[in-house]
Design a protein around this nucleic acid. Structure first.
Length: 853
RNA sequence: GCGGGCGUGGCGGAAUUGGUAGACGCGCUGGUUUUAGGUACCAGUAUCGUGAGAUGUGGGGGUUCGAGUCCCUUCGCCCGCACCA
């Protein structure tokens, strides 16, 4: 049989994808089978939103999970590696409005084309477990879970603000608010209060915080971000009494030590007192209305210029009844945090200082900053560091922590306040005034109030006949869907027309992947076997919200006794983005630059020209691939040109997986050339040459087997790739031998998780006697000969005063004294020492000798 | 603004976690093979210096026999901020 000198990637991709399909190679084993003694591996990548096309970020994410899943299969695990679709969400409704298509049809078409793209990558998914959150068999079960949480008292309704577009008469997402205006209408966005559904995630604040301690296989940065997000803080809650009134309001502070530096009390524009005062004060009402045009995001609130309105009221200082502080309504105090009111201490809080300087309020130092102790505070930068208390009566001389404790103790003793813990975490608002989401299974009845939909009437299915020609929620104006009989009294009633936040959909999909019975959300016994997910892989942008919500949902179901796991993801890996340089040309003053796609560009040395006319364009920074900057590379073109294995290989090469990966034409071509190079090496599997053994190569082979396995386990794919390169170099440099032939055969297995099509092709060429399975997909990872892992000689560095001067080869494990003597005996070293006796000699076994002269 | 992260040759990065900085790849330079281009193969490639050598991990300072790694400080870039997914 003659062998092609070139590996035909396209033909191999098709052939082996068909073979895996026919063989059902990646079916999930029945984990409940009675004789099962294999370890399990649940490998999960964050499921994608079906936008229509996969992008390189997906390719990278799924290539990583795939390598791990295939590797785990080779190392004898029961593997669950599923794929599905986070299929509800705004883009489908936007498409409906812009193109007149139905969100369902648009979404399902997108799923079909993205599924085909993923299949072309040769990903080892169990497609039988595919799910889409927009299908009633999924969201119906989600409704059942939502009702279970409701029964358990974890769901409630309250009034809350939304971004309201007064022209389009619709609720906007934060991303639809640009510079305070609606993205379509351009209208100034207002905050509007609506009655909405909430999940009591705050009930779990403490658990979610302490649970982080058990997640030792999560990145520290993610745990830290979640810790800060949950935001456990201890402080003082106390009441300010309004001067000349028995009324007052509560404030919370984490800095009770600075109480003597107070110069005003501040309440949120959304504080009840502000609303009460505004009723008789048109200017204050106008100020509050103005604040509500700021939008709802914390970022907008905190970056906006600090502004305030003096209500004219004053409150008594709790430590000195004769000291009166003015009460201001300020735009940076959040109603959702603490009590919605604070005292302002400008010297030691930047926001308060900004406000004080703007309105000429007093600024008193109470914490000494080194030698600076004067009460009058001059700087425009607040001092937030530690130090001794000054200008603070009985607190003078104490440290910040002592003063905090002293003030709290006095407040508790005198009865005007108490030490309190507050959480930054807020309850999760899950209401969305939109069509394309899971209907919230409730019915509003004038007589009975808000009534859950009885479980035998689930799922509440979204109506298909909806009209997107006018803005707003089509469910709300649907002619028939919302009108139902009350399940309780049988009278006329209306359905809840809000749908669930799509984060709810992604908060339990990993359970449904493991077990998806038709009549209930999941089977707890099966969940008990598969969960937790052994390796979860996704973008760092999900570090807080998605991951926190999924943890909460899992704990809530556990509290309800529905499952027995507390933490859904045992190990988390956050991969970096795929980036590309940008090509642009300025159009003229005031105009945004025009961007060009990489496919329209010829890259020359340090510049770039347009293919169409050869004119030059500017090469811009390397940034995340995005449609608006046109710096995207379509995976389909790459697959067609180079095949799946080259694409996968490039995604895994070079950049550490947690860091960004800059896509380049040169890079993918390099990967493609390496695929061809391996193909040639795989042609040497039967070339025994003259010698039977090549000890040095055997050593390198076994070091590679062990090293690559370790790197894959650690998801350090770039290092695994480097080791494959190094072994390939070693094989090519060595003379034909039985060892070399064996190394070539073993190399097939080593690259199989990363380049499965090439591996199958090479594997199929081996005689049956050299194959442990008919497909490499079923083959076992090669066994390491531990005796070959250690070298018997090591190179030892010789330093003089920490600078490298010489190296020598010694037997591994050589005695310290021998190593020292050998180093001192080196002619170069002796010459440099010139007979002087070293002060000190440091010997690091098998590593180096440092001689301090 | 708040929270988190990253920074090493022309480029992506490696460095057994305080012990020979630059593995491996890309690119580039020179050469061989090929009708030619591509492919493939061989050699070289941190910087300065003819050399011995010196310098070098964003900048500055420190700890240490020894720092890319630890500490302080500073600059730049990226991610998240609760209705994007």
């Amino acid at each position: 049989m003659t062998r092609d000198t070139r590996f035909s990637a396209l033909a191999a991709d098709t052939r082996w994808q068909a073979a895996w399909d026919a063989d059902n190679s990646f079916a999930t084993p029945d984990i409940m089978r009675s004789d099962n003694d294999r370890p399990k591996a649940y490998i999960l990548e964050m499921f994608p939103y079906p936008s229509g096309r996969i992008h390189m970020g997906h390719v990278r994410n799924y290539a990583m999970g795939d390598v791990l899943a295939r590797f785990k299969r080779m190392t004898g695990h029961d593997v669950l590696h599923p794929m599905g679709w986070d299929a509800f969400g705004m883009p489908a409704e936007n498409a409906a409005m812009e193109k007149g298509v139905h969100p369902g049809g648009w979404t399902r078409d997108n799923i079909a084309s993205m599924r085909a793209q993923l299949k072309r990558l040769g990903l080892a998914f169990d497609w039988d477990r595919e799910l889409a959150t927009c299908e009633p068999d999924y969201y119906g079960q989600e409704q059942a879970l939502f009702l279970a949480l409701y029964e358990a008292g974890l769901v409630y309704r309250k009034e809350s603000f939304v971004n309201w577009d007064p022209i389009d008469m619709t609720v906007l997402a934060n991303e639809q608010v640009i510079d305070g205006r609606g993205w379509r209408s351009g209208a100034l966005v207002e905050k509007k209060k609506l009655s909405q559904w909430f999940l009591k995630i705050t009930d779990f604040a403490e658990e979610l915080l302490h649970g982080l301690d058990t997640l030792d296989k999560w990145p520290d940065k993610v745990r830290l971000m979640q810790e800060n997000w949950i935001g456990h803080s201890k402080g003082l809650q106390f009441s300010f009494k309004l001067t000349g009134s028995s009324d007052g309001f509560d404030v919370f502070t984490t800095r009770p030590d600075t109480l003597f530096g107070a110069s005003f009390a501040a309440i949120s524009p959304d504080h009840p007192l502000a609303a009460k005062l505004a009723a008789n004060a048109p200017q204050l009402a106008e100020f509050i209305a103005d604040c509500r045009r700021q939008g709802t995001s914390a970022e907008q609130l905190e970056t906006a210029e600090k502004r305030g309105f003096d209500t004219g009221l004053t409150v008594e200082h709790p430590l000195d009844p004769n000291w009166h502080l003015p009460v201001w309504v300020v735009n940076y105090v959040l109603m959702d945090y603490g009590t919605g009111a604070v005292f302002g201490c400008p010297a030691h809080d930047q926001r308060d200082l900004d406000l004080a300087r703007k309105y000429g309020l007093p600024v008193h130092r109470v914490i000494a900053d080194g030698d600076h102790v004067a009460q009058v505070y001059e700087s425009d930068e607040a001092y937030v560091g530690g130090g001794k208390l000054v200008n603070s009566h009985f607190l003078d001389g104490m440290s910040v922590d002592e003063a905090k404790a002293a003030v709290i103790a006095r407040a508790e003793h005198q009865g005007w306040g108490k030490g309190t813990t507050v959480w930054r975490l807020r309850d999760w608002g899950v209401s969305r005034q939109r069509y394309w989401g899971t209907p919230i299974p409730f019915i509003h009845c004038d007589a009975c109030g808000t009534v859950p939909v009885p479980s035998n009437q689930l799922p509440v299915v979204l109506p298909e006949d909806v009209d997107f020609s006018v803005p707003g929620n089509p469910l709300d104006r649907h002619a028939t869907w919302k009108h139902v009989d009350c399940p309780s009294c049988g009278g006329k009633a209306v359905r809840e027309t809000d749908t669930l936040d799509t984060f709810v959909d992604s908060s339990w999909y990993f359970l449904r992947f493991a077990s998806a019975p038709a009549d209930k959300p999941f089977d707890p016994d099966v969940i008990a076997r598969w969960l937790p997910v052994d390796q979860y892989i996704g973008g760092i942008e999900h570090a807080i919200l998605h991951l926190l919500y999924a943890r909460f949902w899992t704990r809530a179901l556990e509290r309800l006794g529905m499952i027995n796991v507390k933490e859904p993801f045992a190990s988390l890996f956050t991969q970096g983005m795929v980036t590309h340089e940008t090509y642009s040309r300025v159009q003229g003053e005031g105009l945004p630059p025009i961007f060009f796609a990489p496919t329209d560009i010829d890259r020359t040395g340090d510049g770039a020209t347009l293919k169409a006319d050869g004119s030059s364009v500017d090469v811009g920074r390397v940034i995340k691939m995005s449609k608006s900057k046109k710096n995207v590379v379509d995976p389909d073109n790459i697959l067609e040109q180079y095949g799946a294995d080259a694409a996968r290989w490039f995604m895994l090469s070079d950049s550490p997986p947690e860091r960004d990966l800059p896509w380049s034409e040169a890079g993918i071509e390099g990967a493609w050339r390496f695929v061809q190079r391996l193909w040639r090496v795989f042609g040497e599997t039967q070339n025994l040459g003259d010698s039977a053994e090549d000890k040095a190569l055997a050593r390198k082979l076994h070091q590679a087997i062990a090293g690559i396995a370790m790197d894959i386990e650690a998801l350090s794919f770039n290092k695994a790739v480097a080791k494959v390169h190094a072994l390939t170099n070693d094989i090519e440099k060595s003379k034909p031998s039985a060892t070399r032939a064996e190394a070539c055969r073993t190399l097939i297995l080593l690259v199989a998780p990363m380049m499965p099509h090439l591996a199958e092709e090479a594997w199929s060429e081996l005689p049956d006697s050299q194959r442990t399975a008919h497909l490499v997909a079923h083959a076992a990872w090669p066994v390491v000969d531990a005796a070959l892992l250690v070298d018997d000689e090591v190179t030892i560095a010789i330093q003089l005063g920490g600078k490298l001067r010489d190296t020598m080869t010694m037997a591994k494990g050589a005695d310290k004294a021998d190593v020292e003597a050998a180093a001192l005996a080196r002619p170069k070293i002796a010459e440099m020492l010139a007979g002087a006796t070293p002060k000190k000699v440091i010997v690091v076994p098998d590593r180096l000798v440092n001689i301090v002269a």
